[in-house]
Design a protein around this nucleic acid. Structure first.
Length: 425
RNA sequence: GGGGGAAUGUCCCGAGCGGCAAAGGGGGCGGACUGUAAAUCCGCUGGCUACGCCUUCGUAGGUUCGAGUCCUACUUCCCCCA
């Protein structure tokens, strides 16, 4: 299953040390291949497939993306496969419900949006270790059914496919598993084979839930082409208290800045549980391990310093150093000094609206601090809604020009962490 | 093919004699304590033009002053017999 330590190659050593490894197939063979690169051998080309079901990635996808980054850092070649073709089919992935199928256009526009994230974390180009991006729709959509069955279908037995968890789970719960979904794993195996032939790709990586799917590809390549092929999966990343990662005060932790601001992204990392700091530093920042060890050793309130480093580094990777610093300063102003900073999230309100005044619940709704006026009122009654740092129990109160405070803005807060500035324009 | 169950607050699980905005969890949010942590304790957890009104219990009808609750048909799922 899992692997002995003591890898020779930089790549696997790093992955092991930083907590990326869950399972590896043929670990020794892969280690040798990876080590040869340093001695003048060819870089390893490795790929990870990504679904194109949303317009932005989520922190849950970040491990995989960072994994490609590590690969490139170790002198190998990352291949990003966008699942334009497989997204048309849908991975059964253990869920009970059949996934909603997306249109061609939706998938394409999702892919365009997702590309921007990769551009920040990987170096693309034509060089031997430059990353490339391909869409599996390119070959999958051209597959003829009869040819597909004859060329690939013969290598898969139903008996075997029925043993995979993704399939087994559905069947055990007697939930429907459609034929289209059942074919997902064949398509993924086909991807790997195709990439092996086109780019000499020898390694497919992914989350631990992809292990079975990846092995199918490994076996297909080894059987059909007698070429080397390897599988490597990452563990499912959860928080120390067992929750799956990826919630913040503002909802899901998106990687695109238009869906989650750098400030909120910074806050997400800043609020990491104590027990997770070291693990997350290793996975989600480029800091050297000895530096991480030092931060990890901090005790008590001092561990907050480590969380700030984590927030700074993780934000800088994704949004750039400048944005990370702005977020850090905004947070410092808001939390340490209790003041306001221009970089906090804000909304604009016309000055004219303040002469009759705006009910607080309406304003809180506009600011995104509540999803309905009723919620805003409840929040206020519970003492969680603040105007200029003063709890305001009456959400129907009119907010007027008299509430304009420091810096010419009105500071609205829901709880201690969600702050929105109301700018008068 | 025959027989018997089930579907509940659009996050999930789940109780519900004909008067129900609907018990109880989980999750989430807010408060207290702390360190913007965890654990713990407390409160909230349909909407609105808000002492009132509107929309919710698989779908569509019906009985009734009144239906989540009774009846009919339909849909989907589970169990038993063939």
């Amino acid at each position: 299953m899992s692997t002995p330590a003591n890898f020779k190659s930089d790549f696997l050593q790093t992955l092991q040390a930083r907590g990326y490894v869950h399972q590896i197939s043929h670990p020794d063979e892969l280690d040798v291949a990876a080590a040869q690169t340093a001695e003048g051998g060819a870089p390893i080309a490795a790929y990870i497939g990504f679904d194109a079901t949303a317009t932005s990635f989520h922190v849950g996808n970040l491990v995989s993306i960072m994994l490609l980054r590590r690969l490139q850092q170790a002198g190998h070649k990352p291949i990003v496969v966008m699942g334009g073709g497989t997204t048309k089919v849908g991975d059964p992935s253990g869920k009970d419900a059949t996934r909603q199928l997306l249109t061609h256009e939706q998938i394409q526009s999702n892919i365009d949006s997702l590309k921007t994230t990769f551009a920040k974390l990987l170096t693309f180009g034509d060089g031997p270790t430059d990353a490339i991006m391909v869409d599996n729709d390119e070959w999958l959509s051209k597959l003829g059914y009869i040819d597909f069955l004859r060329d690939y279908g013969v290598h898969f037995t139903i008996n075997r496919m029925l043993t995979f968890d993704s399939v087994k789970l559905r069947l055990e719960r007697e939930q429907p598993l459609t034929f289209i979904e059942f074919n997902y794993m064949l398509m993924q195996a086909t991807d790997f084979l195709e990439l092996s032939r086109r780019y000499g790709c020898t390694l497919q990586m992914g989350g631990s839930d992809q292990w079975g799917n990846i092995l199918n590809g490994v076996e297909l390549i080894r059987r059909v082409d007698q070429k080397p092929a390897f599988a490597l999966t990452t563990p499912l990343i959860t928080t120390a208290s067992g929750a799956k990662m990826g919630k913040t005060a503002s909802g899901a932790v998106w990687l695109n800045a238009d869906r989650l601001s750098p400030y909120d992204y910074w806050q997400f990392w800043r609020n990491t549980e104590d027990a997770d700091v070291g693990r997350f530093l290793k996975l989600f920042t480029d800091l050297p391990l000895d530096e991480i060890a030092r931060l990890e050793a901090l005790q008590g309130a001092e561990i907050n310093d480590a969380k700030k480093v984590l927030a700074n580094e993780a934000t800088a990777l994704l949004h750039g150093r400048a944005e990370a610093e702005k977020a850090a300063e905004a947070a410092h102003a808001a939390f340490v000094q209790g003041g306001v900073s221009a970089d906090l999230p804000s909304i604009d309100v016309p000055a004219a609206a303040l002469s009759p005044g705006i009910p607080l619940d309406t304003l809180a709704l506009d600011a995104g601090l509540a999803t309905s006026k009723s919620e805003a009122r409840r929040l206020a009654q519970g003492g969680g809604l603040r105007v200029n740092d003063k709890a305001e129990p009456d959400a129907t109160r009119l907010i007027t020009a008299e509430d304009i405070g420091e810096g010419g803005v009105i500071k609205l807060a829901a709880g201690k962490k969600k702050i929105v500035l109301v700018r008068i324009v």
